[in-house]
Amino acid sequence: MDINVIGVPIFYGSDIKGVDLGPRKLREKNVLNILGKYHKIYDLGDLFVPSVKENHKFSFHPKMKYLKPIVEVNTNLAHQVYTSLNSGSFPLVLGGDHSLGLGSISGVSKYYKNFAVIWVDAHGDINSHITTETGNVHGMPLASAMGVGYEDLTDLYFHGTKVKMENVFIIGARDLDKGESDLILTNHLNVYSTQNVKEAGMKKVITNIIKTLKERNISTVHLSFDIDCIDSNFVPGTGTPVKEGMTVGEAKTLLKCIAESKLVKSMDFVELNPVLDKDDITSDLCIDLLDWTFKYLK
């Protein structure tokens, strides 16, 4: 398989500096050579991220930080993902914060008309400019992709909804804002909390999701993996760590089962912050998880 590695060194969505160094850190840890054991790797480099001064973060919208550069970067990412898929390659997007998920999904949506998103995250990322409690756009990409929120985000790359709500599966959520919980209840979104995972077992959760996708004749999945899905004890190097998360073993079970399904055609791997890390614990775990995933990816 041909893998196109796309770095997105952006922190504007989280407003926590250091996460923009994630792609560089992973390359320094030899991620390209490691993944090259299993696939042909093409490093497309990092997307350009325009510089914006901190005191201008609300210059583009009163309730969303750094909106303009986030839209610009995500639009370029969407096209990069689309062209990768169009060439028969697998786009692997290395972040950077999770605001980039909107660009990835938008690119996938232009190429595949019927696909699903498996969003693995401690957070729902389904806020809007109306419900946000922080103004951080990395809490909005999935809602925007489902057509909920500000039009600059919902209409990114092309006009209209990018993925149907019923084809979105959120796994590992355990830190939801009120607006997110309301959206989940109103629209009956598919959300598997960490507690659900621990009660049912990760393998059963993934097996049921894959069964549902096949029943709907969906043969394409975009996997968006935020390392904060894992318990904060194991991932000190991330901007919004949350306790009582997945174990490393549960995360590996998830990644293996999804990879072996042969449905995954694109992937995000986000929110590594080397500045917050301790003795490279998180960076080394990220390399281990990527190695593990792409070993099983067919």
Rank of each mutant, 00 (worst) to 15 (best):
P241L: 02
S224Y: 02
V242Q: 07
A200L: 15
D226K: 01
Q195V: 09
T207W: 04
R216D: 09
R174H: 05
L213H: 05
G239W: 01
K178S: 14
V191A: 08
L213D: 03
Q195C: 03
D182Y: 08
L189I: 09
F169C: 07
V235Q: 04
T212A: 06
S219Y: 12
N190A: 13
T207N: 11
E166K: 08
T194E: 08
K214I: 12
I230F: 12
Y192G: 01
P236E: 13
L185Q: 15
N167W: 04
D228E: 14
S193K: 01
F234K: 08
T220H: 13
V205I: 15
H222R: 11
Y192N: 06
Q195M: 11
D175Q: 01
N208E: 14
L189Q: 06
D175I: 00
V242D: 02
S224K: 02
G239T: 03
N167H: 13
V221Q: 04
G172P: 01
G179Y: 05
L183S: 03
I184K: 05
T186A: 09
I210S: 08
K203T: 12
N167F: 10
K198L: 10
E180L: 09
E180H: 11
A200E: 15
S219V: 05
F225K: 07
V235Y: 08
H188I: 04
I210T: 11
N190Y: 12
E199L: 13
R216Y: 06
G172W: 02
D177R: 04
F234A: 09
T194M: 08
L213N: 02
E166A: 02
T212D: 09
C229N: 03
V235L: 09
H188K: 12
R174Q: 02
S181N: 13
A173K: 01
V168N: 00
K178C: 09
D226W: 01
D182K: 08
I210F: 10
K211M: 12
C229F: 03
K211F: 14
T212L: 07
S181D: 12
K211T: 13
H222A: 11
H222I: 06
P241T: 01
N187C: 02
P241V: 00
L189A: 04
F225W: 06
G239F: 00
L185V: 15
S181L: 14
S181Y: 10
T186I: 08
V197I: 12
F234T: 01
I227F: 06
D182C: 05
F225A: 04
I230S: 07
V168A: 01
F169I: 08
I170C: 06
T240L: 09
I218P: 00
L223A: 04
F169M: 06
S181T: 12
L223I: 03
K178F: 12
R216M: 10
Y192L: 06
I170E: 00
Y192F: 14
N233C: 14
I218R: 02
K178R: 13
G201H: 07
L189F: 07
P241R: 01
G237V: 01
G201M: 06
L185K: 15
P236Q: 13
F234M: 03
T238C: 14
V191C: 10
D231C: 11
K203C: 03
N233T: 14
N208K: 11
E166S: 08
K211Q: 14
Y192W: 14
N187F: 06
V168Y: 00
E180I: 07
